[in-house]
């Protein structure tokens, strides 16, 4: 299947600063693709290039298997960096401009997206009277206009309150379930971990890793166990000769295995045969945050 977006060896410099250094990856159809990285890692620059507001120095990208063009951008709902609207116009009038340029949706759809992002009641208020959260919601509304199959969202939860963040997260999951492809840049790792299926991690313009989020996070297997007698559990596990992480307060022992090497049944049998009845036995995924720090530091 042709990837929705295919990026090949893209480099970009601002004077002597190299913002992107030969970045390549594919975004599969139907994925929620997170582009992660600390501030200044090149996330927004990369999105700017694929949306044609920035020019790359070298490399190429293909949308739907074809070089980027205005026709293709019209099929993509985008929110890049900050909400960009005419401040003297109302939410409705701004969306009319988005609609007229992109050709996505119609007048009915404008009202529909305004309802979806909870701005319908304020639809005739001028953009300059909006709070930061409302501006962000209008930008998300503009991206959703006409129900595009592909969305590019740069920090979509910027400026939103916790309820707004949860709503956007829910919306992204809903869109994914409907088969939309979402490309999302974020430095909120918790957000990415909760909604993304795939991710690419950038550090100072270099692609550190890319793939399924689960694969990125699970570079090793961490098995967490607990039992009524913590000391006895510790002694029994130490017989396995594996790296252990002890948490006496929580009463847990974690054993670290190379990726795919943890055999849960064998661990359970080993404990049972040595007189330990486990109260907990789980294969823990490493938190994306921890993995991110490992990769970027």
């Amino acid at each position: 299947m042709t990837p929705v977006l295919s990026i090949t060896n893209i480099s970009k410099s601002y004077g002597y600063i190299k913002a992107l250094k030969g970045v390549s990856f594919d975004v599969p159809e139907g994925s929620v693709f997170g582009i992660l990285g600390p501030n200044g890692s090149g996330k927004t620059t990369l999105l700017g290039i694929i949306m044609d507001v920035l020019r790359q120095n070298s490399g190429d990208f293909l949308w739907f298997g074809k070089p980027g063009s205005p026709e293709q951008r019209r099929r993509i709902g985008s929110l890049l960096e900050t909400p960009n609207f005419y401040t003297y116009l109302s939410g409705t009038d701004n969306l009319k401009i988005t609609q007229a340029i992109s050709g996505r949706g119609n007048r009915k759809d404008i009202d529909m997206v305004l309802k979806k992002v909870n701005l319908y009641e304020r639809r005739w208020a001028s953009f300059k009277s909006f709070s930061l959260g409302m501006k962000q919601r209008l930008a998300i509304g503009a991206a959703l206009l006409g129900n595009p199959k592909v969305l590019v969202l740069d920090e979509p939860t910027n400026g939103l309150d916790p309820v707004g963040i949860a709503e956007i997260r829910k919306l992204i999951v809903e869109l994914k379930e409907q088969g939309h492809t979402i490309i999302m840049a974020s430095h909120l790792l918790d957000e990415v971990e909760k909604v993304c299926t795939h991710a690419a991690i950038l550090k100072t313009g270099t692609l550190i890793t890319t793939g399924l989020v689960d694969e990125i996070m699970m570079d090793e297997d961490v098995v967490e166990l607990s039992a009524v007698d913590f000391q006895a559990l510790k002694n029994v596990i130490s017989q396995l000769g594996k790296e252990m992480i002890l948490d006496e307060r929580a009463g847990t022992v974690q054993i670290v295995f190379p990726k795919g090497m943890a055999k849960m049944d064998e661990i359970n049998r080993h404990c049972f045969n040595n007189g330990i009845v486990l109260t907990q036995l789980v294969l823990r995924k490493k938190r994306l945050e921890a993995r991110f720090f490992e990769l970027t530091n």
Partner: peptide, 11 residues
């Protein structure tokens, strides 16, 4: 308003 970017992004 940075709409010189947005107009391009929109198509």
């Amino acid at each position: 308003f940075k709409t010189h970017r947005q107009n391009i992004i929109d198509g």
